[in-house]
Nucleic acid binder design. Sequence first.
DNA 1: ATTTTCAATACCTTTATTGCATCAATTTGA
DNA 2: TCAAATTGATGCAATAAAGGTATTGAAAAT
Lengths: 300, 300
Amino acid sequence: MIPRSLTYFIAVAEEKNIGRAAKRLNISQPPLSRQIQKLENELGVTLFNRTPKGVELTEAGALFLVEAQNICSVIDRATERTQRAGKGKLGRLDIAIFGSGILNNIPKILLTYKNAYPDVKVVLHTMEKAEQIEALRQRRINVGFNRLLTPLPDISFELITTEKLFLAINENHPYAKQDIIPAYVLGENPLVLYPTGTRPNYIDKVINICHDLGFSPLVSQKVGDVITAIALVSSGFGLCLVPESAISLKLPGVVYRSMSGLPDNAKIDLSCIYRANDNSAILQSFLEVCRTYRATLGKD
Amino acid sequence: MIPRSLTYFIAVAEEKNIGRAAKRLNISQPPLSRQIQKLENELGVTLFNRTPKGVELTEAGALFLVEAQNICSVIDRATERTQRAGKGKLGRLDIAIFGSGILNNIPKILLTYKNAYPDVKVVLHTMEKAEQIEALRQRRINVGFNRLLTPLPDISFELITTEKLFLAINENHPYAKQDIIPAYVLGENPLVLYPTGTRPNYIDKVINICHDLGFSPLVSQKVGDVITAIALVSSGFGLCLVPESAISLKLPGVVYRSMSGLPDNAKIDLSCIYRANDNSAILQSFLEVCRTYRATLGKD
DNA sequence: ATTTTCAATACCTTTATTGCATCAATTTGA
DNA sequence: TCAAATTGATGCAATAAAGGTATTGAAAAT
């Protein structure tokens, strides 16, 4: 990448002798003489005074030496940065997240990624599912996290984890005394459902589970996000079936209990989506971190 | 000077199409494709994603585009500066001056030079003759001004101007009433002589003039510099024969008068000296200004 | 005065670069 | 749906650039 003429010029300037510089450059003396002449012609400036002992820089040559060394370092820096960018180690990654997803898994992934790729600027955007797909297509984001994602022709997805469901229940509720709560309880109590957003969503999931259990849920409230939902549980509005990661959300008067008797589909996935044709190094390195994270989960 | 690979890369990045870029570069498409491949191999980074409509920059490619444009501007700036240095328009000029030389001619030359070559940093050093020659040989200065310079094998000199001599005389002296003072007055009054320094000097010159006039001068004082000499004239120590340029030195009680009857050699030169083998653009451009100045004087 | 030490030149060889023709893949237009 | 058009990639021959060997010419050292 560095122009040959500069390498040659710097060698001659440092050796103050064309023959010696040629030896250092592993070429013979005549071509080096010619290259220096050529450079002088291109610049229209005499860079060296030829002396009986060798050559010495003119004033302009001395200036050009400084400039040449500067050019070389600029080029080196540029190639190095480009190579790091090519390996996904330098750049910017726009990630869309959604309300409750941020609670447990995503922070861990982001932390791992940021440690592995400290020079990638990670920018988070809160978007719901439909917005994420639109933003992906418009290239405003590189990757989006969400649940219940369905494949599209131009959007690929990758599963991060599948979480078991837990019951958020007010500590004063009679069932709160039990460690494991039978599934039929869902049919006998009002439920707080979330999120009200793009279908299919987690509300549909919960309703399906209830149907599989043989009843329709009694809906106490439908709210937009998991925090509001748990807050309502705290206020005694009913029960709420939440993904495992929501357990880390502690609110006064709310306890989480595992359930028995749930159907097999009573799990909720967390996936990420990205443009199917996006093979950029930054995205690939991020997906790699996601896959490693998923593999790590399997072992625990 | 700018690497072909960068020119090519930038064209392709801007056209987003190899064929179109090739047209712009006045080459055919295949070699451009190959040069881009070669660049990608050198960097070890994919710079473009090939699409059915053309090419598009990868993230690393987009970064490299910015870097490449930066490299080009650094190189352009470097060549431009080097060329200016080659024309003597950029750099540093160390000039030695001496006591009274600074009074009239040298400031004018310096002013002209600084206007013509504003980016040359002019550094002045006050030195007497012997010091100037030593400093020239040691390359601490590029040029020195002085009077009564003699040629040396390694030091060339160039005449700036030849000044007529004037008489500095105390305004209370009887002759001060005359506009033109006859030369014999020098033999009838004590003289203040300067400078006491490297021989031959201006003192020798004045003594020779007196001998040519047929007498030996009565020396009142020998002092180091013209200002001290004029100050002594001001105090009534005697007369002082000064170069024309000293007239600009106004001291209370001192008037300057032209003289009649002086011999032909009653003139004092001002020259500059420089290394005989110094053909640097900066020195040459300075000498050119000196020659122009001398030519201008002739016309006035 | 001769040898040595430089850079420069002449002449040839090797390596890069380019252009032409063509291919393979994909999109566009009928 | 199928042919035409457009895209970048590849093979091969021609050209341009760079390099090597031998030699020259000038100046310095011996």
